[in-house]
Simulated assay, not measured.
Amino acid sequence: MKTAYDAQNLIDAQLVCDLLHSAGIPARVSGAGLLGAAGELPAIGVVQVLVADDDLERARGIVTDWDAGEIPDEEELTRLADQAPDDDVDLLA
């Protein structure tokens, strides 16, 4: 698993995670349990969105567009999902 996005907060991370899922990229939020240690940990990089190694490049492209305010519409998300490999990735492995 690789970091596709370093989130500012849990809501930000979940939005990106949902966006990636909509594009056919399995993703998960990591570090949500560490938010209770705020003040003890650095503010950035605690909450991340993780994807499989093979999906990293595509995920970062989608995140970059989203970060720039280019939110894909439903047609674009369908096109991206159709391009996704058909393999089942177990994110918890």
Rank of each mutant, 00 (worst) to 15 (best):
E40L: 13
L10V: 02
I25H: 00
V29W: 00
L91Q: 09
E57H: 11
D82H: 12
V49Q: 03
L41R: 05
G31S: 08
H21A: 13
G36V: 04
H21Y: 13
Q8N: 09
I62W: 11
P85T: 03
G24S: 05
N9W: 07
L50V: 10
A84G: 07
G33N: 01
A38E: 00
S22I: 03
E57D: 03
D12M: 06
G24A: 03
V49M: 01
G69M: 09
A93Q: 14
R58G: 12
L91T: 07
G61N: 15
E76P: 05
H21V: 06
D53V: 00
A23G: 03
E40C: 08
E70M: 13
D90P: 04
D82G: 14
L34K: 11
I44C: 01
Q48Y: 02
D73N: 15
G45H: 07
V49C: 04
V89Q: 10
A52H: 14
A52L: 08
S22P: 02
G33P: 01
A52W: 04
T3E: 02
E40Y: 13
V16W: 00
P85Y: 02
I71L: 08
S22D: 05
D82F: 06
H21T: 15
L77P: 15
T3C: 01
V51D: 04
A23H: 01
C17I: 05
P26K: 01
S30C: 08
A43G: 08
V51A: 06
G61R: 03
A7P: 01
D90E: 13
W66R: 10
Q83P: 10
D6Q: 08
A93M: 09
A27H: 10
R58E: 12
V46H: 00
I11L: 12
I11Q: 13
G31R: 08
P42S: 04
E40I: 08
V89M: 09
S30H: 11
L91F: 11
A32T: 11
I11W: 07
G69R: 09
I25K: 00
Q48K: 04
P85R: 05
A81S: 13
E70Y: 14
D82N: 13
I25F: 00
A4H: 08
D67A: 14
V47D: 00
D55P: 13
L19S: 04
S30M: 09
V51N: 06
L50K: 14
Q14K: 15
A32F: 07
T78D: 15
Q83A: 10
G36S: 07
Q8S: 11
L91K: 06
E76S: 06
L92K: 12
V63R: 09
L92M: 12
L50E: 12
L77H: 13
G39P: 02
D54L: 04
D18W: 04
N9G: 06
L77M: 15
T64N: 12
E76N: 06
E70D: 15
A68S: 12
E40Q: 13
D18S: 04
R58M: 08
P26S: 07
G39R: 03
D87E: 15
P72M: 07
R79H: 14
A32N: 09
R60V: 05
P85W: 02
Q48V: 02
R79L: 13
G31N: 11
G61A: 05
V51P: 05
S22Q: 06
A93R: 12
A43Y: 07
L19H: 04
L15C: 05
C17R: 12
A68G: 10
A32G: 15
R58H: 13
L15N: 12
I25A: 00
V29P: 04
E57W: 07
I62Q: 13
V47E: 02
I71W: 07
L56F: 00
